[in-house]
Simulated scan of single mutants.
Amino acid sequence: MEMTPDETTLFTVWGVGINETVGYTWIVMILLTVASMVITRNLRPDVPPNRWRTTLEVIVTAIQSQIEEISPRASRHVLYFSGTLFLFIAFSNLLLVVPGFTPPTASLSTTAALALSVLIAVPLFGITRQGIGGYLKTYVQPSVVMLPFNIISEFSRGISLAIRLYGNVMSGAVIAGILLSIAPFFFPVVMDVLGLLTGLIQAYIFAILATVYISSATATVGKPLHKEKDK
């Protein structure tokens, strides 16, 4: 049993082998992009919403409400970032039910890349909100002695995000493989259901943690949080 999609070549382009991680990642991105374009192509007030548009609006509204509960001062850019993370991870894990499909989130390289995007986004959101000086001051709070600890904490967040997502997806794959060898007719159905549930939960947790980190970076020290309207 393959332990990671990095080890399997999905197809070859100009003599270069593309592994399952890269190939399925692009497939997920293309499917999400095409689906969003098709659903929103008639996004006008005079056009009544269909069921797909209604479903998309429910998902976006739910994500936005969760973000606003965590960070009242969150901008729409946080919704775009965290929402994209959630949709990519959730859709990747949901496609597990497709025969032969291996979720790219089962690769440590993918989860590390997602965690790295959070590590980059956190200071960018913080600098945008507070300025470079204001954001850098958060590393010496409550005193300059905490500087190395705050830096270590920042990087440990990304590591924990990557390992948590990778570990949960891979553990599910390993358990499914073991049960499949024991009872190949009954357990796959059960594991598919559990895999879908776990995939949604992991996508939710990852997006929520990313939002929490961004909220912490954009919170002004010594000032109360208040809800701000997007301009």
Rank of each mutant, 00 (worst) to 15 (best):
G133S: 07
A121Q: 01
M29N: 07
G17R: 04
V22S: 05
R51L: 10
T33S: 13
V122C: 03
V98K: 05
P99G: 06
W14N: 12
S109Q: 05
G133V: 02
N42F: 11
F86L: 14
V78K: 04
T111C: 11
T54V: 05
Y24M: 06
E7Q: 12
W14R: 10
T111W: 07
F91W: 02
F11L: 08
L94Q: 10
L119E: 08
M29I: 14
S117K: 05
V122F: 01
I39K: 04
P45S: 13
V78P: 00
F11Q: 02
E7K: 10
G100E: 06
M29A: 15
P103I: 12
R44L: 15
G131S: 04
F125H: 13
F86M: 09
L116F: 15
F88K: 02
I132S: 08
W52D: 01
P45K: 14
F86C: 02
S82Q: 01
T40K: 07
V118K: 03
T55K: 07
S117C: 11
F11Y: 14
I89L: 07
A115W: 04
L43N: 15
Q64V: 05
P5K: 12
N19I: 10
P104M: 10
A35W: 11
V58L: 10
L43E: 14
I63S: 01
P5D: 09
P5S: 11
T111H: 11
V98A: 14
L114A: 06
G100M: 06
V22Q: 03
L95Y: 07
P99M: 09
R129T: 11
P103T: 11
G23M: 04
